[in-house]
Amino acid sequence: MGWLFDPAHWSGTTGIPVRLLEHLLYTFVTLLIAAAIAIPLGAFVGHTGRGGFVVVGLSNALRALPTTAVLILVVLWAGLGDFPVYVALVLLAIPPIMAGTYAGIRAVDPVTVDAARGVGMRESGVLLRVEIPNALPLIYGGFRGAALQVVATATIAAYTGAGGLGRLVFDGLALQEFGQMLAGAVLVALLAVLVDLGFAGLQRLTVSPGLRPVGTGGKR
């Protein structure tokens, strides 16, 4: 573990803090984009009940996509930079978020939904003020699953020359420096745990206490 605690590795433009920040940036931007795509899609399909088969099928197909290949293909087509990294990671993050949203909305008690319609809510109100708040625990479940995967997988950004903690893993491999590889692995795992704790806190703050017993597990 000497490599990790050597002060020389904690400063400069290629120091550990910079790599950590790059990694966090990849993670958050990816999650934002993925959520912006997957939550409306999952919510729409869950609400209308149409196209559920497509959502499940699409999620499974996307899950099978090897992220490395997607990354390389986008690099070959669009050139280097952060764009290919985001494409690959967003594709990775969409399935769990979409599946969580879809499942969450489908799982809302039909009696509750009928009651909302009964008191004169419009469809948009039913979705935004009843179904989504009630589905939040499962949405968070999907979202946190996606976050864990993205933090772990953002490591491959380094394969095409981009930054992040993957640099430590890839440079360690190239130099056969075991300490550096290990430092990369440990930092990514730590970051994953911290990010998950952060979202767990956010979940506590934003989910109605009435739903809590369902939501404690994160993953159902």
């Binding site: 070959l76 280097l80 020359g161 890839f170």
Partner: peptide
Amino acid sequence: KEFKALDVGGPLTVAGLKDNT
């Protein structure tokens, strides 16, 4: 000024030179 880890004389290095990274 800085060293940028790319690849072994491959597409990354060539692209890095071309786009002046």
